[in-house]
Amino acid sequence: MTLTVEIILFIGLLAYYYFVLRKYNSLGFRMFSLFSFVAIAVVYWWYQDYQELESLKKNGVFIEGLVTKKYVEHTKESSVPDNVVVLNFTDNKGETINAEAREMTSKEEYAAVPIGQKVLIVYDAAKGTVQLKTTFDRSLHDFNYILIFPGLLFLIGLGCLIFLSRFKVHAHEGTAYEYLTDENGKVVLDDNHSETTRTIKKINLVSKIVQAFAK
C-alpha cells in the first residue's frame, strides 16, 4: 500500500468518524463499523494474493531451480518478515533467470530447501512471479479458508450491532475523550476519569506520530 493510499484512507476514516460515528453514536454501530473495516482490509489483502495465485495457476510453469541464497528480510510494509529464497533457473525460452521466492514462503518451506539444492518451482513469466511448488500447493489448499476469518469478524460486528446498540457514545467537547451511557442515560464509562484510558490514548498518539515521521 502506497503512502498516498494510506493518507487517503486515513482522511476517509477520520471523516467517517466525525461525520458518521459522532452523529450515529450507538456503541453497537461503532463496533460493527470497526469489525467491518478490519474484515474489508483482510479481504483486500487476500484478494491481492489471490490475483497472484490465479495468475500462477493460469500462466505458471513447473521448472527446477537451483537455490543459490536464502535470507530473512524485514520490511517497513509488514510486521511479518519475508522468507526469501533466491533461485537460478532456465525458462522455457532457454534464458537464465535469477529470481526470488518471497512473501508467501512459510518458515517450514524456507527451512526445507538448503542452498545448492535443486527444487521444483512455479514460474509465471508474464508477471515474473516465482513460488516454491510446496508454497504453491499449500496456497491452493488453504487460500479460501482465510476468508473464514473476515467472515467471523463480520459476524462479531453484527452481534455487537444487535446487542450493544442500547449503549451510546458521547464526546467531551473540545477533547479526545468520550463517555458511554446506557439506555437510561446513566454514565457507565468515562474516558476522562480513567487514567488507564488516558495513558493508552497518549501512547497511541505518540506511536502514530513516530510512525508518520519514520516513513
Rank of each mutant, 00 (worst) to 15 (best):
D142T: 11
V43P: 08
T68H: 02
D182T: 01
G128V: 06
L34C: 09
Y16D: 07
I11E: 00
E173V: 14
K69L: 06
S139M: 13
I8D: 13
L66R: 06
P114Q: 01
R30K: 04
V86G: 02
A112I: 04
A15W: 00
S207R: 11
M104K: 13
I203C: 06
S106E: 13
E108K: 13
Y145T: 10
V86D: 12
H172W: 14
L9Y: 05
T175F: 06
S139T: 05
I162V: 11
A112S: 15
W46D: 15
K93R: 12
S194G: 15
R102N: 13
V67Y: 03
V80T: 09
L120T: 11
N88F: 02
L132S: 11
S55P: 03
K69W: 05
A39E: 07
Y110M: 12
I115F: 02
A41V: 12
Y145A: 12
L180I: 06
T96Q: 12
R102V: 12
V130N: 01
Q48C: 05
N25A: 00
A101C: 02
I97W: 01
E73P: 01
L140D: 01
C160M: 14
K133D: 13
G94A: 02
E108R: 08
V80Y: 04
Y16I: 11
L155F: 02
T199E: 14
C160A: 15
V80N: 08
E109N: 15
K201Q: 15
I7D: 08
V80H: 05
H193Y: 04
F32I: 04
L14H: 03
N25D: 01
L132T: 10
L180A: 10
D182V: 01
D137F: 00
S207E: 09
V119R: 05
Y50D: 07
I115N: 05
C160W: 04
I148D: 12
K118C: 03
T129F: 01
G174V: 14
N184H: 00
M1G: 13
R138F: 03
T105S: 12
